[in-house]
Nucleic acid binder design. Structure first.
Lengths: 176, 176
DNA sequence: CCGATCTATATCAGACCAATATAGATAGGG
DNA sequence: CCCTATCTATATTGGTCTGATATAGATCGG
C-alpha cells in the first residue's frame, strides 16, 4: 500500500490539496492506521496526475502559494477499486517501546517504570483522540476503524497497567 | 529506531550472523514488533563494524559462503545503553486492512466479508505463533512482549468477530 | 529424482521519511 | 503593541529501508 494508493483513496472521498491530505491523517478513520510525509505525498500527487488518475486545478491566492486542489478522475476511481479487490499487503506494527522493554534487565529500574508510564500516557492520549470526533456522523467504515482502534488501545492500556507492579521501583532503591 | 540500533540490541543478547538476525524476527519477543530486511541488515552490520560497535569473525565453510559472526564490543554495548536512555521514537502501526475497510461502502458485500475473515485468520495465526515458544524459559522482557502481543491480538479478535453481522452478505445477495 | 526449502551473503532500484527552505497570515500572551 | 508560535501551502534533498533479484550448494520429502 504505497503513498500513491493512499492519496488516491483519500481523494475518492473528496477533493483536497496535498497539505489537507497530510492533515487528514490526524482525523477521522485514518488516525493511527495510515500515515505519509510531505516528502512522499507531493511526488505521489504529481505522478498520479501524469498517469491521469487525478487532475489538478490551481486556485491562485494572494500572498500565499497557489492551492493545488486535486480530484479523482474516472480512471483513478476504477484504479483504486481494482486495488481494493486485490490481496492486501499485511499490517505492520513497529514498536520501539516493546523493543526497549525486551532489554529491561539492562536498565535502571527507574528508567523502566518511566518508559511504562510514558507509554501509558501516550496510549491514553490516543484513546482520547479517538473520542474527540465522536459526535459527528461517521460512515460504517469510519465507525469500524474507530471501534477497532478503541478495542486495541483499551486492551493495551489494561495490560500495561497490570504490568506496573512488575516494573515498580523497589522501595529500597527508591529510598536511595 | 533504525536497523543499526535493532541489530546492535540483538547482538547484545549473543553473537549472530546477518541471516540469523533476520530469522530472529520471527521468534521470541521480537515477533510482530520489530522487523528489517536483508537489504538493510547487511549494510547496517558493515557500518557498525566501521564504527567499532561490533566486530566480525569469519568462519569458513566448505561449499558455502563464509559465516560472518558478529559480536558486540564494549563500545557497542554502551552505545546501545545510551539509546535506551534517550526518548524513544513513537510506535507506528500501518494497516492496509483498516484502510480498505474505510471504503467498505464501495465494495461488493462478499469482498468485505472476505477481507474480514482473512484478517481474522491472520490474527488467529499470530496468536498461535505467540503460544508456540511458550514452553521455553522467557526473560521478563520476553514475557512482557509476549503478553502485550497476546492482549492486543485477543482484543482485536474479539472486536472483529463482533463485527461479522454488520458486514455479512445479505441473504438476498448471497442467493444470486 | 525432482522440486522445495534451507543456509548465507550481497546488491540495486525504487519508495519513503525527517529535516529544511520559503513566506506571509493569524492568534495569543506578556 | 510586539513578539513568538502556529498555521497555510508547496517543494527538495540526503539518507534510510524494502522487495526483488542473484548466487550456490545442501538437505529433505514425496
Amino acid at each position: 500500500m504505497d503513498v500513491r494508493t493512499i492519496c488516491l483513496g483519500i481523494l475518492t472521498r473528496g477533493d483536497a490539496t496535498g497539505y489537507e491530505i497530510k492533515n487528514l491523517f490526524q482525523h477521522d478513520g485514518y488516525q493511527h492506521f495510515v500515515e505519509a510525509s510531505f516528502g512522499s505525498i507531493y511526488p505521489a500527487l504529481n505522478r498520479l496526475c501524469e498517469e491521469g488518475l487525478i487532475s489538478v486545478r490551481e486556485e491562485a491566492q494572494e500572498k500565499r502559494p497557489d492551492r493545488k486542489v486535486y480530484s479523482v478522475t474516472p480512471a483513478g476511481r476504477s484504479a483504486f477499486l481494482a486495488f481494493l479487490l486485490k490481496p492486501l499487503p499485511e499490517d505492520r506494527h513497529r514498536s520501539p517501546f516493546v523493543f526497549a522493554m525486551l532489554f529491561s534487565d539492562l536498565l535502571p529500574p527507574g528508567r523502566v517504570s518511566a518508559l511504562l508510564e510514558d507509554y501509558i500516557n501516550q496510549t491514553e492520549a490516543k484513546l482520547a483522540q479517538l473520542d474527540e470526533g465522536n459526535t459527528k456522523h461517521k460512515s460504517a467504515g469510519e465507525e469500524f476503524a474507530n471501534g477497532f482502534g478503541r478495542a486495541i488501545y483499551e486492551a493495551a492500556l489494561e495490560f500495561l497497567k497490570k504490568q506496573r507492579p512488575r516494573f515498580e521501583i523497589p522501595e529500597a532503591v527508591a529510598a536511595e
